[in-house]
Design a protein around this nucleic acid. Structure first.
Lengths: 163, 163
DNA sequence: GGGAGAAACGTTATAACATAACAAAATTCA
DNA sequence: TGAATTTTGTTATGTTATAACGTTTCTCCC
């Protein structure tokens, strides 16, 4: 999964995510209700982690004001079906670009622009499982959140520092 | 760093941690004040992640009742000097068994007993850096939290399931 | 179509985690 | 000692998350 470029056709991202979600829910016999779809859409408003209360405000702006449990329930549903990931280090959520395709959460976070991307490196999962096994530990789930600088911001830093 | 056994000389863990902290602070010219030392000691009360408000209560029981900022400031100090790690997926903190020795946070969490241990596998850091680099991303800091089952709980599960 | 059961949603209240802002005390060091 | 710095105390509030319970909507079988 490539890091999202600063300028890209983002409406295409949203559409793709919604289509994929629709399909995945059909496959699983899960109900992608109005609220759930809207929350997913709002999570995809950007490629940055979004907090539950920011989503609440967005809902309000859409004329669908709601209380926290409504949003958290939608988020729980989306998490349970792999349509979003939780970014624990930011208390936020990001859309998963390829639901269905099993994968742990490997997330890159740009410290500069806040954009997030998935790493999704199977070798990493293996390495962790092996390394843990050496201590007699068996792995269920793993959270990998990597903070650093995305290509775009690195390029910008180079441009902004002419000698 | 081995996973802590169910029964072990835990007072030795605490003592070792306090000694190491003392030494590390001397080396860095940092002041390990009373509160900071006490909070560190309380973090080491168990090998499980401890929340800030649990620490507050412990302080209260010791007759040193305090307000949240006091605890959070002590925690910030301990984090800044590598004496504890934050466990973001649990909103908690655990003691670092080998401060000074640079390492990212690689934490194993047992879903059963709640015990935590550090993995500290350099190959993992390298793999992440390389994998991120393939997307043009440079790494600053990484959070790895792995949930699973510790050796002790696995053995117990086997015993509890005869046949 | 009607009705029982399940799933989803609304609503109120509150729990749990974290920090802003400013005052007072302790420490350092010239 | 006394000025500058660091640490701690204190009050208030911001932010994130969930408990509990009632109502509505949907599903599915008759």
């Amino acid at each position: 999964m490539a890091f999202p470029a600063a300028r890209h056709d983002h409406s295409a991202c949203i559409q793709a995510a919604l289509d994929a979600a629709e399909q995945e829910c059909r496959r699983r016999g899960a109900r992608l209700t109005d609220i759930r779809r809207i929350v997913l859409e709002l999570v995809w408003e950007s490629h940055r982690p979004v907090g539950a209360y920011a989503l609440l405000e967005s809902l309000g702006r859409q004329g669908r004001s709601a209380a926290p449990p409504t949003v958290y329930r939608a988020l729980d549903f989306l998490l349970a079906h792999g349509l979003i990931h939780r970014v624990t280090s930011r208390n936020g959520f990001i859309g998963c670009p390829h639901p269905g395709h099993a994968h742990g959460g490997q997330i890159l976070l740009c410290a500069q622009c806040g954009m997030a991307a998935e790493l999704d490196d199977p070798a990493l999962d293996r390495e962790i499982a092996q390394s843990a096994a050496r201590l007699g530990f068996t792995v269920n789930r793993q959270t990998i959140e990597v903070e650093g600088h995305c290509p775009t911001c690195q390029a910008q830093a180079r441009d902004d520092t002419p000698q």
